[in-house]
Lab assay of single mutants.
Amino acid sequence: MLDDRARMEAAKKEKVEQILAEFQLQEEDLKKVMRRMQKEMDRGLRLETHEEASVKMLPTYVRSTPEGSEVGDFLSLDLGGTNFRVMLVKVGEGEEGQWSVKTKHQMYSIPEDAMTGTAEMLFDYISECISDFLDKHQMKHKKLPLGFTFSFPVRHEDIDKGILLNWTKGFKASGAEGNNVVGLLRDAIKRRGDFEMDVVAMVNDTVATMISCYYEDHQCEVGMIVGTGCNACYMEEMQNVELVEGDEGRMCVNTEWGAFGDSGELDEFLLEYDRLVDESSANPGQQLYEKLIGGKYMGELVRLVLLRLVDENLLFHGEASEQLRTRGAFETRFVSQVESDTGDRKQIYNILSTLGLRPSTTDCDIVRRACESVSTRAAHMCSAGLAGVINRMRESRSEDVMRITVGVDGSVYKLHPSFKERFHASVRRLTPSCEITFIESEEGSGRGAALVSAVACKKACMLGQ
């Protein structure tokens, strides 16, 4: 009897593995994704193909990295998701002549009506938060230079001027797309009239992360975010950046690689679950690469896999709870928690219980395998993109072996128990001629924006502006 049951459990697990095998990517698959990513990057950089390229390769006008001589107080704003952060950054000489960066910050959550109302409502709310922060720190009387981390696709015309191309991540505030974001912020500050600010720089969160990590390690020339969304930036040779005049030196390019796949480059790798996630998203047909990796989508992918296993009578005796059938019910943090389970399955059992399920031991094991399959594919897909960037940098610099540091931020990278190990191992397999160091950014977005502002202020002083 026991043997029969054991055989049935083994057969069930084997069927589960057959279904989950769809998520496995072979090294040849990853090399294919990497080569296609490089081709799209090239198209994004070139003037004649930029418009139709899915990977936009947006110039950021960040050319210099901090040298350690900029000092002063800077205000930093960070808008990239449902939370908005205001930070005071003091850049100065530390002990023994070292450079020191001290920060104080406060988080504000953005109400739904500000995210989806008008641009005026959104930026009025942001300036209200700045006003509140300055009151708390008794700094209303000071006109501070301000660095703005704005983590949406922007076409820069200068370091302090950028046109919002399109909202992502659930934002829909009308009247912002096609307009200068810094102008919208300046107008809102003017409307309030109770404080003055000098907006000197606007950067993407990947750029802010790279600059913040450069402060720790001067070989950091790539910034990457794996959180709600997924994106990367890197220092490109100016001669390859056709959208900006000049051939000397390097400029940081914001790849906006989340949109890779929007022209069909990933079609052969998309599964039924991916198509369902895409169809029910706020932007169907867009940001397809990001939807395979980002935390906004990972939990939902797992939920759809679990429903398939229920329908195949391989999980929960073929019956799903009402909660499990509800879109968004299986949160991405559950994926991390399930994979963090120590082996007694308590954590998995508790999560499934909150979803109205009474799982068996085998159910718990199957749910864990589903989570591992989805998150491992995410790590491997992400590795193909980064390997594409790094191999490109090595080739354009004609280096036999390139040493490089990548600064990384984002909740999936930082909080998932195995993502970074799987990701690092896969990147290294795909970049055999590179020695890569990964560092995690601390308060990256805010500190990085302030350091970019410090560079901009120093330049302005040198130019006598």
Results as ranks from 00 to 15, higher is better:
293 I>T: 14
401 V>E: 15
408 V>M: 09
212 S>Q: 06
383 S>M: 01
398 S>H: 13
97 G>P: 12
374 V>E: 01
134 L>P: 00
311 D>F: 08
337 Q>R: 09
111 P>G: 09
202 M>S: 11
462 M>V: 05
352 L>P: 00
68 G>Q: 13
325 R>M: 15
283 N>C: 08
378 A>I: 05
250 R>D: 00
128 E>A: 04
27 E>K: 13
40 E>H: 02
259 A>M: 13
125 Y>Q: 14
105 H>P: 02
125 Y>W: 07
242 E>P: 06
26 Q>G: 10
373 S>E: 14
12 K>G: 15
56 K>S: 09
203 V>S: 10
139 M>Y: 09
220 C>P: 13
39 K>D: 14
111 P>F: 02
164 L>I: 15
244 V>A: 06
344 D>P: 02
353 S>C: 02
440 E>D: 03
166 N>L: 09
373 S>A: 09
76 S>W: 05
63 R>D: 08
140 K>T: 11
39 K>W: 08
90 K>N: 05
269 F>G: 00
413 Y>H: 02
219 Q>W: 07
135 D>G: 11
387 A>Q: 02
104 K>I: 14
398 S>V: 11
183 G>M: 11
259 A>G: 12
133 F>Y: 06
263 S>R: 15
15 K>I: 15
402 M>E: 07
54 S>W: 05
394 R>I: 03
299 G>Q: 01
152 F>S: 15
121 M>W: 08
182 V>S: 05
227 G>P: 00
319 E>Y: 15
399 E>R: 07
198 D>N: 14
239 Q>M: 13
11 A>L: 13
184 L>V: 09
188 A>M: 03
396 S>W: 10
114 A>Q: 11
40 E>C: 02
269 F>M: 14
75 L>W: 03
220 C>A: 15
16 V>N: 02
208 A>L: 03
256 E>T: 09
402 M>T: 13
131 S>Y: 08
46 R>D: 08
17 E>R: 06
108 Y>F: 15
334 F>Y: 04
197 M>G: 12
462 M>A: 15
237 E>D: 14
370 A>W: 00
290 E>P: 09
418 S>Y: 03
292 L>F: 12
32 K>Q: 11
446 G>R: 12
165 L>F: 11
369 R>N: 08
50 H>V: 10
52 E>L: 11
5 R>C: 15
375 S>H: 03
133 F>C: 02
272 E>V: 07
249 G>F: 02
418 S>N: 05
86 V>W: 03
464 G>T: 03
422 R>Y: 14
24 Q>S: 10
169 K>L: 08
206 T>R: 02
395 E>I: 10
86 V>D: 03
168 T>Q: 09
332 T>H: 08
174 S>C: 15
344 D>I: 02
290 E>A: 10
297 Y>N: 05
260 F>C: 02
214 Y>Q: 01
265 E>N: 10
310 V>I: 08
297 Y>E: 12
116 T>P: 03
336 S>G: 07
342 T>L: 06
181 V>L: 11
156 H>G: 14
436 I>L: 14
304 L>V: 09
356 G>Y: 04
136 K>L: 10
23 F>N: 00
368 R>E: 02
369 R>K: 08
283 N>I: 12
149 T>Y: 07
451 L>S: 08
194 D>S: 08
8 M>Q: 06
244 V>R: 01
249 G>S: 02
58 L>T: 04
158 D>P: 15
241 V>Q: 06
100 S>D: 12
319 E>A: 10
92 G>W: 07
102 K>A: 07
70 E>Q: 07
296 K>S: 11
399 E>T: 13
400 D>Y: 08
156 H>T: 15
246 G>A: 03
433 S>R: 12
82 T>S: 13
244 V>T: 05
448 G>R: 08
214 Y>N: 03
101 V>E: 14
30 L>H: 05
231 N>T: 12
428 R>T: 13
451 L>C: 09
147 G>H: 11
180 N>Y: 12
255 T>D: 02
323 Q>N: 15
365 D>Q: 07
353 S>V: 07
237 E>C: 10
221 E>V: 05
436 I>N: 00
325 R>W: 05
305 V>C: 07
333 R>Q: 05
359 P>V: 03
64 S>Y: 06
25 L>R: 01
406 V>C: 06
161 K>T: 14
453 S>D: 11
231 N>C: 06
101 V>L: 15
463 L>E: 14
11 A>Y: 13
446 G>T: 15
343 G>K: 12
33 V>L: 07
251 M>Q: 05
76 S>F: 07
193 G>T: 09
356 G>R: 06
437 T>W: 05
27 E>R: 02
25 L>H: 04
439 I>L: 08
56 K>L: 09
340 S>Y: 09
32 K>A: 06
449 A>H: 07
85 R>F: 09
16 V>A: 05
5 R>E: 14
131 S>D: 11
149 T>K: 07
110 I>S: 02
253 V>E: 00
281 S>K: 00
39 K>C: 09
386 L>D: 01
81 G>C: 14
60 T>S: 06
271 L>I: 15
105 H>S: 07
174 S>W: 10
250 R>S: 03
310 V>H: 13
225 I>Y: 10
419 F>E: 00
191 R>A: 02
178 G>N: 14
152 F>Y: 11
142 K>I: 11
295 G>P: 08
257 W>Y: 01
34 M>I: 02
272 E>P: 13
207 V>S: 04
270 L>H: 13
312 E>A: 15
98 Q>I: 13
45 L>S: 01
116 T>R: 13
36 R>Y: 07
183 G>V: 10
204 N>W: 09
385 G>L: 13
50 H>R: 15
68 G>F: 13
338 V>H: 01
111 P>S: 11
149 T>L: 07
125 Y>K: 01
454 A>H: 09
442 E>A: 10
244 V>I: 15
416 H>Y: 12
420 K>L: 07
119 A>R: 10
318 G>M: 03
314 L>P: 00
353 S>H: 11
141 H>E: 04
190 K>T: 08
184 L>C: 13
374 V>C: 07
108 Y>N: 10
422 R>A: 12
243 L>C: 09
304 L>N: 10
424 H>Y: 10
331 E>C: 14
387 A>N: 02
19 I>G: 01
403 R>H: 05
387 A>H: 00
187 D>M: 00
457 C>S: 14
54 S>A: 12
318 G>T: 05
291 K>L: 02
102 K>P: 00
325 R>F: 15
25 L>K: 03
211 I>P: 01
48 E>S: 13
115 M>Y: 09
168 T>V: 08
232 A>E: 00
33 V>G: 01
63 R>V: 09
